[in-house]
């Protein structure tokens, strides 16, 4: 039994989950633009700071109360694999509708880091999001990212490093 720490990436389909996974691990998984195509769970290794992690790309989920098989699988991973960090990746444009899952993850006692992905698209349509204020409201680390270009990924890794150390 090795005690490698785990990072689970969760979020609804189509928010750039698989791409974030690739950014963190450098291993390619088939990226799908299509809601619900990522049925299989992809795993890879990532080095963040000095620590090596196993990164798990969970199937798309909208809520901790599952409707689909994918959501059941994703919840099972969260419950059974005891991840050291759970990255909840959301579409920054849709913060309002995606926050409820963040709440549920925090409520479940999971070590959540929130990644506001595709933040460039949000900016493009004229949304400005106050990240420090959001952090204060949620009491968890928050980072703005663009997984297609890699913007904000280093900041996200920094937040993960701090977070993993503090827990």
């Amino acid at each position: 039994m090795s005690f490698i720490k785990k990072i689970a990436i969760v979020g609804s389909p189509n928010v750039g989950k698989s791409l974030l996974f690739n950014r963190l691990t450098g291993i390619y998984a088939v990226v799908s633009n299509y809601p619900g195509t990522t049925v299989d769970v992809t795993r890879g290794k990532a080095k963040i700071g000095e620590e090596e992690y196993e990164v798990i790309d969970t199937p798309g989920m909208y809520s901790l109360l599952p409707i689909t098989e994918e959501e059941r699988v994703a919840r099972k991973i969260l419950r059974e694999e005891k991840p050291s960090v759970v990255i909840h990746i959301i579409d920054a444009k849709n913060l309002e509708r995606m926050l409820p899952l963040t709440f549920q993850l925090i409520e479940a006692g999971l070590p959540v880091v929130l990644a506001l992905n595709i933040i460039d698209e949000a900016e493009k349509i004229g949304l400005a999001i106050d990240l420090p204020l959001l952090e204060k409201e949620l009491k968890i680390p928050v980072a703005g990212t663009v997984s297609t270009t890699g913007r904000g990924i280093d900041a996200l890794k920094g937040r993960i490093k701090e977070y993993a150390r503090s827990r």
Partner: peptide, 8 residues
């Protein structure tokens, strides 16, 4: 039925 909800 297609609708916009927030930004999606």
């Amino acid at each position: 039925y297609v609708f916009q909800l927030g930004q999606s």
